[in-house]
């Protein structure tokens, strides 16, 4: 196996020769990888290895910044999304960030349907209600907030805020959900709630998650991807990688020789 190519049968998202450079520093080098539908894939690696940069390339977040250059192909459902308008792409790939970032001026309700509002899509009240309820139930937040839907989202606890942000991404029913270390700012109880929820979500969504937490990857991911210095080092079923890593660097990382 070419170590920079990892193929999977019938993928939902395929990446080919993806390179991301900050000015002239390549942070992701020639990565090619496929992602399986309705699964959780964890992207791991030491800090600075390019894992977040890779994730943010999938929904073309890098294009918000002028000094970042991307080359390569990203194919979602057999369509090259590098050729689509970014605003269209991003609707199909929802994103959740490291720190919970609900919109501070909006209520919980408005936060959930923010995507529709921002995109200028007018919905009937009943449609809105349905989307809000469904999305909040998906993240197991409905029971906690159903009586305070019109209060500001910033009054919630950190874990609740992060689940609200996930609900916000789910409201659009995207194909893929990208999570960038979603639990790194949260306490262990909030973290385990979110992990449990992610496992449930994969029935309906494809989840790609960056994590610096190996045990988290082991707990919830089906596939794991290990990156080092911008390169894809190893990609396999999580169980296989954790029990029998093929690359020496992966083994060293998993056994805590470096981090």
């Amino acid at each position: 196996m070419n170590k920079n190519i990892a193929k999977i049968e019938d993928p939902i998202l395929s990446v080919r020769d993806l390179t991301v450079a900050y000015d002239k520093n390549e942070a992701v080098k020639q990565v090619s990888v496929d992602f399986k539908k309705n699964s959780v894939t964890a992207i791991m690696g030491p800090s600075g290895c390019g894992k977040s940069t890779l994730l943010r390339a999938f929904n073309r977040m890098h294009e918000l910044y002028e000094n970042i250059h991307i080359t390569g192909q990203i194919i979602l459902n057999e369509e090259d999304i590098m050729k689509m308008p970014p605003i269209k792409v991003r609707r199909n790939l929802g994103m959740v960030f490291q720190r919970p970032n609900p919109f501070p001026t909006m209520s919980i309700y408005d936060n959930v349907i923010a995507g529709y509002k921002l995109n200028g899509i007018r919905l009937k009240k009943s449609e809105k209600d349905e989307i809000v309820e469904r999305s909040l139930k998906d993240v197991a937040l409905w029971d906690e907030v159903k009586d305070t839907l019109f209060k500001k989202g910033t009054f919630l606890s950190g874990g609740q805020q992060q689940r609200l942000c996930i609900a916000r991404a789910l409201a659009f029913s995207p194909e893929v959900i990208l999570l960038d270390e979603p639990t790194s700012a949260l306490d262990p109880i909030a973290t385990s709630k979110i992990e449990e929820m992610l496992i449930n979500l994969k029935k309906n969504y494809t989840i790609i998650m960056v994590t610096h937490n190996m045990s988290q990857a082991a707990r919830i991911s089906d596939y794991s991807l290990f990156m080092y210095l911008g390169e894809l080092v190893e990609y396999d079923k999580t169980k296989t990688m954790f029990t029998n890593p093929k690359e020496k660097r992966t083994e060293e990382y998993l056994t805590g020789k470096f981090s």
């Binding site: 995109n119 469904r134 309906n204």
Partner: peptide
């Protein structure tokens, strides 16, 4: 849980 309401809204991107 069934996946409901996929994105069927036009994006009017132009």
């Amino acid at each position: 849980m069934e996946r409901v309401n996929p994105i069927s809204y036009p994006d009017h991107s132009k």
